[in-house]
């Protein structure tokens, strides 16, 4: 009797449990496959037709001629400073400064970018939107760091290693042993009593290329300007670009 009851209970409980439980599905097997998308696969025509106008608009924009480049310039042309780097840094100084002034009522003292950030060179001939995309494919923003004299000196020392990091409105002289001989900002010696506004890219502010002095910035000012857009605007402003390396950064023999 007791045994029977127990069995009945078991049955009832089992049914209840089955009502409550997932009477769903269980995986028995799985399969896997990876399809390489190659040119042996036909295009879906409807999707191609949908993409077409977007693609054509980009092509049109990318081929738009913005300016003319008189001298071919590439990132590794010269040591210490390069034509293309000088152009980029000067472009940032020229276009970011008015924007910075209108937003924060201060002026940019120095521009410093990084040599590795110049992603392509410029041949002689038409400068197109495509050119700006090839030099600067990333979405980095121009930002302004406020540095005190201590951080500025660290910056000079960093640059004394001799790499052709692009800069503007500053001049550096190093000796044969890469020791700093002279540093001038806007043709003036460093003033220990004030801070300096250094325009750069957000990549460097975030620790790129180990420019640690940016970590000591008293303030970071954002001006909502992409470096690439700045270059496009700069090219549009200029009829002809003709840049060369100069004496903003020299090493004594």
């Amino acid at each position: 009797m007791t045994v029977k009851l127990k069995l009945q209970h078991l049955l009832v409980i089992s049914i209840l449990l089955c009502l409550a439980c997932n009477d769903g599905f269980q995986v028995q097997q799985t399969g896997q496959e990876r399809t390489a998308i190659t040119d042996s696969i036909p295009n879906d025509k409807a999707l191609e037709d949908f993409i077409s106008p977007y693609r054509n608009k980009i092509k049109g924009e990318m081929e738009k001629v913005l300016s003319y480049n008189a001298n071919p310039m590439f990132p590794k042309d010269t040591p210490y400073n390069t034509a293309i780097g000088n152009m980029m840094a000067d472009a940032v100084y020229e276009l970011a400064n008015p924007l910075f002034y209108s937003k924060f009522k201060d002026s940019i003292d120095v521009v410093l970018l990084n040599h590795g950030g110049i992603r392509a060179g410029m041949s002689q001939g038409d400068i197109k939107t495509r050119t700006a995309f090839s030099i600067m494919p990333f979405e980095n923003m121009v930002v302004v760091a406020e540095l005190d004299a201590v951080a500025m000196k660290e910056m000079f020392n960093y640059l004394s290693k001799g790499k052709a990091h692009p800069f503007s409105n500053m001049s550096l002289v190093i000796d044969g042993n890469n020791k700093l001989k002279e540093a001038k900002i806007n043709q003036q010696e460093l003033d220990e009593s004030r801070t300096y506004f250094v325009a750069t890219s957000d990549y460097l502010i975030k620790g790129g290329d180990n420019m640690d002095f940016f970590q000591k910035a008293k303030n970071i000012y954002e001006i909502d300007y992409k470096l690439r857009n700045l270059l496009i605007d700069y090219f549009q402003k200029k009829d002809t670009i003709s840049y060369s390396s100069d004496d903003r950064f020299i090493k004594l023999k």
Partner: peptide, 30 residues
């Protein structure tokens, strides 16, 4: 599958209906 749409990944699941194994465990524990 890497990046840039160079590949399309695929996983197939073949399933059967059946009691959840939790149910079995509960009954056994009685």
């Amino acid at each position: 599958v890497g990046y840039a749409g160079l590949y399309l990944g695929r996983i197939d699941f073949y399933l059967s209906s059946g009691k959840d194994k939790n149910t079995k465990n509960s009954v056994v524990s009685l």
